[in-house]
Simulated assay, not measured.
Amino acid sequence: MTRRRKLRPEEQELWRQVARTADPLHKRPAKKMSEPEAGPKPLLSQKPAPRDPLSPFALGERSLPRTQTHVFPKTSSDHLHEAPVRMDAKAFTRLKRGKLDPESRIDLHGMTVDRAHGALIHFILNAQARGLRLVLVITGKGQREDPYDPMPRRRGVLKTQAPMWLQMPPLSSAVLQVSPAHRKHGGDGAYYVYLRRRR
């Protein structure tokens, strides 16, 4: 067993300089190097000082409020329901109830996305040139979801894309309002498109 030697004064000074730059692992009151350890530890028979009584509390009262973890993306119909009404309010109410009959219609069933986009642009601009005000765009509801498909897929690509196409150039200048169709005109599988007057 080796005996520890006492540090010389210059070694003690060097040690203090190093100790000042280090972060302690456990916070303890600093003690001088040459000081002997504190007196004897209290015996077990001595009672510890009484603690302050705990104030009443509820579990989790200081925790942050939980946020909603599942945020589902909005559907095309949700976006259309939230859109402001730009056409006459009475005419819009009649339109929603299926009281207005479309003057022309296009059926995009079975078309690819590229072909459907081109056909829709041609149809809307042609209908506006002919002076029509209300047309029906039939997209279909899309394929039913496969319950055995391991990966969820969006239903109806054309149903999702058509309202976006109608709000983008070159169609945005021709379209005044887009709304989901009434049940008698196709319901979820079609959209009413109310056109601006051509100037």
Results as ranks from 00 to 15, higher is better:
residue 159 K to Q: 06
residue 76 S to L: 00
residue 142 G to T: 09
residue 65 P to V: 08
residue 106 I to P: 09
residue 191 Y to S: 09
residue 111 M to S: 05
residue 176 L to D: 12
residue 103 E to P: 03
residue 162 A to Q: 06
residue 180 P to R: 12
residue 187 G to I: 12
residue 102 P to W: 10
residue 127 A to H: 01
residue 69 T to W: 10
residue 180 P to L: 15
residue 127 A to Y: 06
residue 197 R to F: 06
residue 78 D to S: 06
residue 129 A to I: 07
residue 112 T to V: 05
residue 180 P to K: 10
residue 131 G to F: 02
residue 115 R to Q: 12
residue 64 L to D: 11
residue 110 G to V: 06
residue 198 R to E: 09
residue 174 A to H: 12
residue 114 D to Q: 00
residue 173 S to T: 15
residue 148 Y to Q: 14
residue 162 A to C: 12
residue 110 G to I: 04
residue 88 D to T: 04
residue 75 T to M: 05
residue 192 Y to P: 06
residue 186 G to D: 03
residue 194 Y to N: 04
residue 189 G to C: 03
residue 137 V to D: 01
residue 120 L to F: 00
residue 89 A to H: 12
residue 158 L to S: 04
residue 153 R to L: 01
residue 148 Y to I: 07
residue 139 T to F: 04
residue 135 V to T: 13
residue 93 T to L: 15
residue 147 P to V: 10
residue 102 P to L: 11
residue 67 T to K: 13
residue 132 L to F: 08
residue 119 A to N: 10
residue 176 L to Q: 14
residue 132 L to Q: 13
residue 188 D to M: 09
residue 126 N to V: 02
residue 149 D to A: 09
residue 79 H to Y: 13
residue 160 T to V: 14
residue 128 Q to N: 10
residue 199 R to Y: 14
residue 115 R to K: 15
residue 147 P to K: 11
residue 149 D to E: 07
residue 140 G to N: 12
residue 123 F to K: 01
residue 168 M to K: 15
residue 106 I to L: 14
residue 195 L to W: 03
residue 131 G to L: 05
residue 78 D to A: 07
residue 144 R to Q: 13
residue 71 V to M: 09
residue 196 R to A: 08
residue 188 D to C: 03
residue 136 L to S: 05
residue 159 K to S: 04
residue 68 Q to T: 14
residue 112 T to S: 13
residue 147 P to Y: 08
